[in-house]
Nucleic acid binder design. Structure first.
Lengths: 157, 157
DNA sequence: GGCATAACCGACCGCTCTAGTAGGATTTAT
DNA sequence: ATAAATCCTACTAGAGCGGTCGGTTATGCC
């Protein structure tokens, strides 16, 4: 499995928030019930989303969570990365602050790492798919009962 | 991490086999030494590659492993899948024998799974990257000391 | 035949991460 | 005051990862 249920649950949570029309907060309890997920586990996940600035919270009675931005401005790479941590295909991959990709095997001897080409392509494919999908798309997709094949292939082709 | 070191080690092993010019088998011991990897762990990995029909073995003295096919005909999706198991972005994804993708959440109620669109795109990106890369490319890439940026983006763009 | 070499096989083991559970503290509308 | 909700920390069972180890079988070479 590429991702764990943390991403699955967290994305469902985000979609649920995106579905709400008004600007009043939604309690985690109602999300948990709607999606049939354990409330106490969702608490951990929503904490990550909040720290990443993707949702805002209001405490106390009638409190809950809201999207921090319009759903159309939330890219799914940010959501998944908040939940799962940095998305790299392999342990030896590290993003440097300057935006370059480092492979830790390259330091021992200066010859190119034989696997780097492959993992670069994989990472490219994944980030392209995630960054090219917005929360708004998922919200709209989930409300239709019969998704079209064109929609699925949309931002990949 | 999307993949574990099983894929990393296994791919390195395959590249090492692909580098050999003749058709005489290479012992695992020499591969382990060349790549600085634990021999006994490589045994487990090469067993998976053999069961997947990607390498052939000859036992006894002067025995070892060879690629079962020319490197240009070995696609990396087969290699990674042999090592890591079926490549699905999420637990609830299952490939049916007919080639369709099932999401186990879709059975409870007939409404579309809110996350399916996203994971479909991710899986598409990954399989495209893996299936679009051959072992021969990695072999050639690893022998050059200075890989070009064009080569990296080659089959993804 | 005997020996070295190497593939093969299964059991085991410490570690980290996952998927939760539990219990409490704090904030706020009514 | 009370109920509803977020927030926070600690804990746990289980699974998978990254090996290690010991032993068995097959084969070339002298």
């Amino acid at each position: 499995m590429l991702f764990s249920t943390k991403a699955e649950y967290g994305v469902r949570l985000m979609v649920e928030l995106g579905r709400q029309p008004g600007s009043q907060p939604v309690s985690l309890g109602s999300v948990a019930e709607a999606e049939n997920l354990p409330l106490s586990y969702l608490e951990h996940l929503v904490a990550k989303l909040r720290k990443a600035g993707l949702v805002t919270s209001t405490r106390g009675a009638h409190g809950g969570y809201r999207l921090a931005k319009p759903a159309a401005e939330i890219r799914m790479d940010a959501v998944v990365e908040a939940l799962e941590g940095q998305i790299a295909p392999m342990e030896c991959f590290h993003d440097t602050p300057e935006g370059k990709v480092l492979c830790s095997h390259e330091s021992d001897g200066d010859q190119a790492c034989s696997t780097k080409l492959l993992w670069m392509r994989v990472q490219g494919g994944v980030t392209k798919a995630l960054a090219g999908t917005t929360l708004a798309e998922l919200v709209e997709f989930s409300t239709k009962s019969e998704p079209t094949r064109a929609a699925v292939l949309g931002s990949v082709a």
